[in-house]
Every structure is written in structure tokens, then in C-alpha cells.
């Protein structure tokens, strides 16, 4: 890990959260993105998992700090403290499971109220390799996303199809917002940071007076 730190050079740090119903494939999606392979025999997430990766978008190095949450309803009280300050949110549903799609609205509401008002949100229809069991059409989901003014993509965490695109797409939107002056990366609570603040600086500089979990 020490060696990783040396090459930990980035321009911006974006915090992402992955939310959605249990069994939609959130952890597999994250694993596919970080490790570039499918996570076999994985178990469900208890609480939250975490992953980070540096991607190159629009000539910038962006570090994504990704929080993968447990999907079961009753974990919401635990996971909601991790929404805070997220610059990007991935709402994952399973295209073979109608219920997980129907719950999109609830997740969307959570993301909007608990993260940031200007969080960039993408709906991710996962398991698109299972076309024969499809219960939600591409058109329907894409229309729903449009109505709610959020992005939409279909992915397969199994084959890796579309997975990287999801993260890059959201990162690009956030980057555009920063460059258009809609988001000031320096004033954010913890959703994005400029890299220069962190690299080589004493970590004490990061500590803010407010407490994390008292939302």
C-alpha cells in the first residue's frame, strides 16, 4: 500500500456511492470496475464496502472514492451516513427483477435528500447479459431516467460490458460541472477534493470541525 501511495497523484477526488436493492449486483459492479474481473462466490454486503481507483477523464486524473452500500431496506439507517457529500451516485437495479426497478424512485429520493443537491446520478441496469430473463426494457428505463433528469446505462458486471463507461460518464459530468463553475471543488464537504490539497499535505489539514456521522 505504501507504494500505491507514491503514485497516488490526482487532480480531483470524487466521492461516489452505489445504492440500489439487494442482489442487484452493486458489489460485483464495483469489483468489476476496480479489478476488471467478475467477483465469483461473493456474499452480500454488510454495511458498506469501499474501493478506489484513479481514472483519466478529460485530460485529468481523477480519483474515485467509491462507497458500496448494503441494499437491504433496514440497512438504510446505517448506510445513509455514507451518502453525505457524494458527488456521484449510481443507482443499480437488476434488469431481470421488476421490483428492483420499481424501487428506483425511493433510491433517487434518498440520493437527492441525503447526498448533495447537485449530485450527479446515474441509473444502472445491471445483468444485461441475461437478456432472456429481462423484465425491464431499455426504452422504459431510459425514458424514466430522462423524466427524472438522470443518466442511464445498462451494464453487465459479469462480462464487464458498460461498467467502466458508467463511472467515466458520471465523472465526466462532474468534471464539466466543475469546469463550468457549477461546483467549486474546494468548498465541498467531502464530495470532491482537488488533489493538490491532499498530496503531501499533512492529513491534519483535512480535519474539519464538524463530526462525520451526526447527520
Amino acid at each position: 500500500m505504501a507504494s500505491e501511495k507514491e503514485k497516488d497523484q490526482y487532480d480531483y477526488l470524487f466521492k461516489f456511492i452505489i445504492i440500489g436493492d439487494a442482489g442487484a449486483g452493486k458489489s460485483c459492479l464495483l469489483h468489476q470496475f476496480i479489478e476488471n474481473r467478475y467477483k465469483k462466490g461473493s456474499s452480500h454486503t454488510i454495511g458498506v464496502e469501499f474501493g478506489s481507483k484513479i481514472i483519466h477523464v478529460g485530460g485529468r486524473n481523477i480519483k474515485l472514492q467509491i462507497w458500496d452500500t448494503a441494499g437491504q431496506e433496514r440497512y438504510r439507517s446505517v448506510t445513509r451516513s455514507y451518502y453525505r457529500g457524494a458527488a456521484g451516485a449510481l443507482i443499480v437495479y437488476d434488469i431481470t427483477n421488476r421490483d428492483s426497478y420499481n424501487h428506483l424512485v425511493n433510491w433517487l429520493q434518498d440520493a437527492r435528500t441525503l447526498a448533495r443537491a447537485d449530485t450527479s446520478i446515474i441509473t444502472v441496469g445491471n445483468k444485461c447479459d441475461m437478456k432472456d430473463k429481462r423484465a425491464v426494457t431499455f426504452l422504459e428505463a431510459s425514458r424514466c431516467a430522462q423524466e427524472n433528469d438522470i443518466l442511464f446505462l445498462e451494464t453487465s458486471a459479469l462480462t464487464g460490458e458498460g461498467v467502466e463507461d458508467v463511472f467515466i460518464k458520471v465523472a465526466r459530468v462532474i468534471l464539466n460541472k466543475i469546469e463550468d463553475g457549477l461546483i467549486d471543488p474546494n468548498t465541498m464537504v467531502s464530495g470532491t477534493h482537488t488533489g493538490s490539497q491532499r498530496i503531501g499535505s499533512d492529513s491534519g489539514g483535512e480535519a474539519m470541525s464538524s463530526k462525520t456521522c451526526s447527520c
Binding site: 454495511g47 451516513s81 492529513s203 462525520t212
Partner: peptide
């Protein structure tokens, strides 16, 4: 505190299981 690390993140895993 410095890193604003929330114990709940690990405790949920340790205790619940």
C-alpha cells in the same frame, strides 16, 4: 477523528456477523 473515519463502518460487520 483526523480522517473522519466512522467506526460504524467496521462495527456493522464485526457485530452483526
Amino acid at each position: 477523528q483526523i480522517h473522519r473515519f466512522d467506526l460504524l463502518m467496521v462495527v456493522s460487520k464485526w457485530f452483526l456477523c
